[in-house]
Design a protein around this nucleic acid. Structure first.
Lengths: 337, 337
DNA sequence: AGCAAAATCCAAAACGTTTCGGGTGGAGGG
DNA sequence: CCCTCCACCCGAAACGTTTTGGATTTTGCT
C-alpha cells in the first residue's frame, strides 16, 4: 500500500515535505506541491488514518453504544431513526461512526470505558440504556465525553438530549379531557427507563389540572412490550369497565391495549380511547391510526451528535438539548359516548 | 493515558515483556505476569487499538456502506434488520463496525476505495446500492474484500448474499393462481435494483407455468415507492378493471396498491388480491395484513458478515450465500369472486 | 563440575504519520 | 560586501504497540 515514504522517494523530497504539501501548509513551493499531488494520485495514495490518529491523538470518530440493537428492536424504528440522525451530522462534520457491540456476553466483560479507550473514540452517544445498567455508573466515573439519549445526566463531559416528557403526556391527557373523558387509566413502562417517571408525572399533572384524581389501580406496567401491555390491559379493562380512555407510554403498548380492547368487544375509539407515545412508523399505518405524541427521533440523533461535538470542542457549557414533541391526533381517540 | 511503557517502568521490566505478558505468550514467568496484570488493572491500562493495528496491519474492523441510511429509509426496517444481523455476527467475532457516510456531498468526492483504505477496514459490506452507482464499478476495480447484499457480484475478493427472487415471486403467482386468478398484473420496482429483474423473471415464469400470458401494459414501475405505486396503480386499475390481482415487488408498493384499490372502491381482498415482497414490520400490522413473501433480513446481514470473514480468512472459495424466503399468506389475497 | 537445554528476559526495529527545530540559498537593503 | 529576511526544505523524534533475534540465567542431567 502506498505510503508517504514512497511519494517522498519518487518526488525526491523528504517525507516532511510530502506531509506538509498534502496538508496544505504554505511553506512548500507550488511546483513541488503539484508534483507531489500528481504522484500521490498516480500511485493511489491514501493516508493511513491509524498512523495519523496515533500521532495527532485525534481519531475523528465517535462511538455508538445502543442497547436495543437486537432483533426485536426493529418494530419501533426509534433506534434506526436516531442512528440516521447521528449519521447525518457525522457526515457533515466528517466524523466516522463506530458501533460497539454490547449485546454479546463476550464483550460484557469489557467495560464501557475500556471499549472507548481501546478504540480511541473521541466521544460516545449512548442510547436505550436502562437506569440500572452498570454502564451508567461508568459513564459518571470515566471522563469520556458522551451524550445520552433520554437520560438526564450532566457533568463536565456528559450531556443528554431528550424531549419534555412531562409536557408530552400532559398533552395527551388534555386532549382526552377535552373529549370529555374522566375515567382515564395509564399504561406506563418499566421503571428502568427515566422517561417512565417523567411520563407518569405528566399524567398526574394533567389529571390534577383537570380536577381529576389518579387511581393507583389504574396505572399499570406494560414494560414497553406489546404483548405484556395487551395482557395487563385485558385484566385492567375487565376489572374496571368504567375506564373510557387509557394513555400509554409507548406506541407499541398502545397497540397492545387496542388489541385487548377489541378482544373485549370494546371498539376503539368508540368505546375506548387510546393514546400512544413516540409516533413510530406503525402508528400511522395501523387501523385505527394511533393518536400519539410524536418525537422527532432523527432530530434527536442529530442534536445528540451536535451536542457531543460541542462538548468535545469546549464550545459552550451547554449540556442539555430539548427537542419539541407534538400531539398527533388520529383515530384512536374520540368523544366519550 | 496509561501505556505499556508506564507498566514497564512500574514493573521494572521491558516493554517487550509487558506486551508478551499481556498477550499470553508462554515465555514469561507467571509471577511477573501476575505483577504486570495487577499494575495494568491498577493504572487502568487499556491497549491502544490504533497502535496495535498499525503494527499488526489488522484492524478487526469492517466497514458498512449503506445507501438507504436516510430519513425515508425508516419505513421499511430492512436496512436496520440487516445492520442488526451484521452487528450480531461482529459481536461474536469481536469485530467492530464502522459506518461510512455516503450520503453527504462532501464525502462523495472521496471514492469508495479511499474511504476503506483510509480507515483500514479489512472488508466492507455494501447495502442498497443501485446498479448504476459509480461505487459499484469501483468495487470491481479495487481489491478490497467486500460482500454485497442483493447484488450478484463474484470475484476473488467479492461475494454476495441474496434470496431466490425468481422463486419468491413465483410463489406469489402460484398462490394467486391457486386462488383462481388469471388477470394478474405486476407492480415492479425500478431497473436500478438487481432484484427487479429477477422478480420480473419470476413473474413471467410463474405465469407461463400456469398457462397464462403476461401483458406488457400490466407490468408497471412503482419505483419502490408507496406514493408512486399508488398513483400508477390508480391508472392501471381504472384502465384495466378486469385485473383481479396484482403482485408487487415490495411491501411498500403493495400498500400503495391497496390504497389505490380502496380509493376506487375495490375492497381488498374481496375485489382485488394484492401480494407484497419483503415482509417488513408494517406488513403484518396493517389492515388488511399483507400477504407477502418474506425475507429474513437479519439472517442476510448475519450471513453477509459471515461470508465476508470467510473471504478475509481465505477459508473457502465460496462467494455466494442464498437465504430462503417464505410466502406468508395473510389477508390481502382471496379466491377470485 | 560441566554442559546442553529450557526458561526468562530485553534492545531495537518497524508500522505511517505529524511536528519541532532548525538549515540552506538567494534576494533585498544598507 | 555584509547582514537580514524570506522561501523552501529536511532530519529526527514522537505516538504506542508487536516482533525479531538474541542474551542471560536457571535447570536438569551425566
Amino acid at each position: 500500500m502506498a505510503t508517504i515514504k514512497n511519494i517522498a522517494k519518487l518526488a525526491g523530497v523528504s517525507v516532511t515535505t510530502v506531509s506538509r504539501a498534502l496538508n496544505g501548509y504554505p511553506d512548500v513551493n507550488e511546483n513541488t506541491r503539484k508534483r507531489i499531488e500528481e504522484i500521490a494520485k498516480e500511485i493511489e495514495y491514501s493516508p493511513n488514518a491509524l498512523a495519523r490518529s496515533l500521532v495527532m491523538n485525534k481519531t475523528k470518530t465517535i462511538g455508538l453504544l445502543v442497547s436495543g440493537l437486537s432483533r426485536e428492536g426493529a418494530k419501533d424504528n426509534i433506534v434506526f431513526d436516531v442512528l440516521t440522525g447521528i449519521n447525518e451530522f457525522c457526515g457533515e462534520e466528517e466524523y466516522d461512526l463506530v458501533l460497539f457491540n454490547t449485546t454479546t456476553s463476550k464483550q460484557k466483560e469489557k467495560t464501557y470505558a475500556q471499549l472507548c479507550r481501546e478504540r480511541r473514540v473521541e466521544g460516545v452517544i449512548v442510547q436505550g440504556i436502562k437506569n440500572d445498567d452498570p454502564y451508567l455508573q461508568e459513564i459518571f466515573d470515566s471522563n469520556i465525553p458522551c451524550v445520552l439519549i433520554d437520560v438526564p445526566v450532566e457533568s463536565e463531559t456528559a450531556g443528554y438530549v431528550t424531549t419534555d416528557n412531562v409536557d408530552g403526556l400532559m398533552k395527551a391527557v388534555r386532549h382526552l379531557v377535552e373529549l370529555g373523558h374522566e375515567n382515564i387509566a395509564m399504561m406506563n413502562g418499566h421503571d428502568q427507563a427515566f422517561v417512565s417517571k417523567e411520563r407518569f408525572k405528566g399524567f398526574e399533572l394533567g389529571m390534577r389540572e383537570a380536577g381529576l384524581s389518579v387511581r393507583k389501580e389504574w396505572v399499570c406496567n406494560g414494560e414497553y412490550s406489546e404483548k405484556k401491555a395487551e395482557k395487563v390491559a385485558l385484566e385492567l379493562l375487565t376489572a374496571y369497565p368504567e375506564i373510557t380512555a387509557v394513555v400509554c407510554a409507548s406506541d407499541l403498548m398502545a397497540l397492545g391495549v387496542v388489541r385487548a380492547a377489541e378482544h373485549l368487544g370494546r371498539k376503539v375509539p368508540d368505546l375506548l380511547s387510546v393514546t400512544g407515545y413516540d409516533d413510530i412508523t406503525l402508528a400511522s399505518y395501523v387501523t385505527p391510526a394511533l393518536t400519539t405524541v410524536g418525537q422527532d427521533w432523527f432530530r434527536m440523533g442529530y442534536a445528540a451528535a451536535d451536542l457531543l461535538l460541542s462538548i468535545l470542542q469546549h464550545k459552550s457549557g451547554e449540556r442539555a438539548r430539548l427537542i419539541e414533541n407534538e400531539l398527533k391526533i388520529r383515530n384512536t381517540t374520540k368523544e366519550k359516548q
